[in-house]
Design a protein around this nucleic acid. Structure first.
Length: 226
DNA sequence: AGCTGATCATAT
DNA sequence: ATATGATCAGCT
């Protein structure tokens, strides 16, 4: 088996065709086709599966702050699912602009830009990145007006807490589809934020995540409103 | 069993 | 240090 394409997809149809081609492939065969000289690890580690699928589809953005398929404006997300088709994990969206919440608004937010057009590639398996895991049915998603209004509501609720200087009181329980959770290499990492009296404070960096309940519904029906 | 808070890996 | 890619593991 070899990958029948090598460059960036030219248009959405080409990306659609590549995504459909991926369905049913195991991580082992993709790994073998893309890294023939690398010794096959027992299993992939954190983040490896996403990078493997990026390469398999010809994503171009690297670690730039841009959609994976820059020309197409499409963001790629691999999502681990179980045999029932339910996500095992939430989906990271982007980091939180803790120091700039004053002038943060939904319309110009990174989270809105990231979620404007997403290609979800489900990975079916027992554990993360196991090489016998295989690709499920890819799903393209663009939020409907109704879905976007719910995301905007979450965003506004979450940002309000931060704008009030209450970041330390912000829990992952807040938000219907979007939530805020720590996003850092380890517990000692700190970033600048502002407290209740606008005083500078140091706190753990946070990120926006999509709840598994929401992405699970999207995989069943991209127009659903769970 | 599902969820939240914590953490791991690579690239720039 | 910050972006990207996420999953781990303890608690409820």
């Amino acid at each position: 088996m070899s990958i029948p394409f090598h460059d960036v997809p030219r248009d959405l149809d080409e990306l659609r065709a590549r995504a459909a081609w991926l369905a049913g492939r195991s991580l082992a065969e993709l790994h073998a086709a893309l890294a023939p000289r690398a010794e096959a690890p027992m299993r992939q580690r954190k983040g490896k599966t996403g990078q493997l699928i990026e390469r398999a589809l010809g994503a171009s953005a690297g670690s730039l702050d841009a959609p994976d398929f820059v020309e197409l404006g499409v963001e790629l997300k691999t999502i681990p699912i179980d045999a029932r088709g339910l996500p095992r994990e939430s989906t990271f969206v982007c980091t939180l602009p803790l120091a700039e919440v004053d002038h943060a608004e939904w319309r110009t937010s990174r989270v809105r830009r990231k979620l404007a057009h997403v290609l979800f590639v489900p990975i079916i398996g027992e554990r993360a990145g196991e090489l016998h895991s295989h690709v499920g049915t890819p799903v393209f998603w663009q939020p409907s007006a109704e879905q976007e209004s719910i995301l905007r509501g979450d965003f506004d609720d979450l940002l309000e807490v931060i704008a009030l200087g209450r970041i330390e009181a912000l829990t992952a329980r807040l938000g219907r589809w979007l939530q805020v959770r720590p996003k850092a290499a380890h517990g000692r990492v700190r970033t600048r934020a502002y407290g209740p009296d606008d005083e500078p404070i140091e706190t753990i960096p946070r990120g926006f995540y999509l709840r598994a309940r929401f992405t699970g519904a999207l995989l069943q029906d991209p127009t659903s409103v769970p």
